[in-house]
Structure formats: structure tokens, C-alpha cells
Lab assay of single mutants.
Amino acid sequence: RLGFCQHHDDEVLHLYCDTCSVPICRECTMGRHGGHSFIYLQE
């Protein structure tokens, strides 16, 4: 089961930031992890 983002309370962690080695949400890709390399996580 996927968890929720600690920075965006209502967002599920659907992605993994390869650059930072952390799970991220959709909102994170447009903010603090913008321009980073990421992949989609599987449930």
C-alpha cells in the first residue's frame, strides 16, 4: 500500500525520485523535485 506525502497531505506517493532517492507525490514533481529524474511506483 502506498503512503501519503509528508509535504502534501492529500497526495499519495505514486512516484520515486531517482535524483534524491525518495518516494514523492505528483505535486512534488512540480515543486521541490522539479526537473529531477523519477519513476512511477507500483502498488
Score class of each variant (00 low, 15 high):
L13M: 11
C25E: 02
I39P: 06
I24V: 08
C25Y: 02
H33K: 00
H8F: 05
P23F: 03
L15Q: 12
C25H: 02
R1M: 09
C20T: 01
M30F: 08
F38V: 12
R32G: 12
T19W: 05
F4G: 04
T29S: 11
C17Y: 00
T29R: 14
E27K: 11
C20E: 01
R32T: 12
C5T: 00
C5K: 00
G34V: 12
C17F: 00
L41E: 09
R32W: 06
S37M: 12
I24G: 01
Q42C: 09
I39V: 14
G35C: 06
H8R: 04
G3E: 15
F4D: 12
G31H: 09
Y40K: 15
D10P: 05
H33P: 00
H8D: 03
L2D: 11
F4Y: 07
L2H: 05
V12H: 13
C20P: 02
D18V: 07
Q6T: 10
Y40F: 08
Y40W: 09
G31M: 10
L15K: 13
C5H: 03
P23V: 06
H33S: 01
L15F: 12
M30W: 04
L41D: 14
V22D: 09
I39M: 09
M30E: 15
L15N: 10
C17I: 00
T19N: 09
C28I: 03
H33C: 13
H33G: 02
S21W: 04
S21F: 07
R26F: 13
I39D: 15
C25I: 01
H36I: 00
H14G: 09
C20G: 01
S21H: 09
Y40E: 15
C20F: 00
R32N: 11
I39L: 10
Y16G: 03
C28N: 04
C28H: 02
G35W: 03
G34K: 12
H8G: 08
F4S: 05
C17T: 01
D9S: 14
E11H: 12
Y40M: 15
D9Q: 15
Q6A: 09
H33L: 00
P23H: 14
L15C: 06
R32Y: 10
P23M: 05
C25D: 02
E27Y: 06
C17S: 00
L15A: 09
S37L: 06
D10I: 03
C28K: 01
C20D: 02
L13F: 05
C20V: 00
S21I: 02
D9A: 14
F4P: 04
H14L: 03
V12Q: 12
C17K: 00
G3R: 04
E11D: 07
C5E: 01
Y16V: 08
H36C: 11
E27Q: 15
Y16C: 02
H8N: 04
G3T: 03
L15T: 11
F4H: 02
G3F: 09
Q42W: 08
H8T: 08
G35E: 11
G34H: 08
C5I: 00
C20Y: 01
Q42E: 10
H36F: 00
T29A: 12
R32V: 13
C20R: 00
H36K: 02
G35Y: 03
G35I: 02
Y40L: 09
C28Y: 01
S21T: 10
D18R: 10
D9K: 15
Q6G: 06
E43D: 15
H33E: 00
E27T: 12
H33D: 01
Y40I: 08
C28T: 02
H33T: 02
I24S: 02
D10H: 13
P23Q: 15
H14Y: 06
E27L: 07
T19D: 09
C28M: 02
T19P: 07
L41S: 10
I24R: 02
T29K: 13
V22C: 01
V22R: 08
E43F: 00
I24N: 00
G3W: 03
P23C: 05
S21G: 07
E11V: 09
P23N: 04
C20A: 01
Q6V: 04
L41R: 14
Q6R: 07
T29N: 11
S21R: 12
Q6D: 09
D18Q: 09
H7I: 07
Q6M: 06
C20Q: 00
V22A: 13
E43Q: 11
E11M: 15
D9Y: 10
Y16I: 07
T29C: 09
G3C: 06
H36V: 00
I24P: 02
Q6F: 08
G31V: 07
C20N: 00
P23A: 12
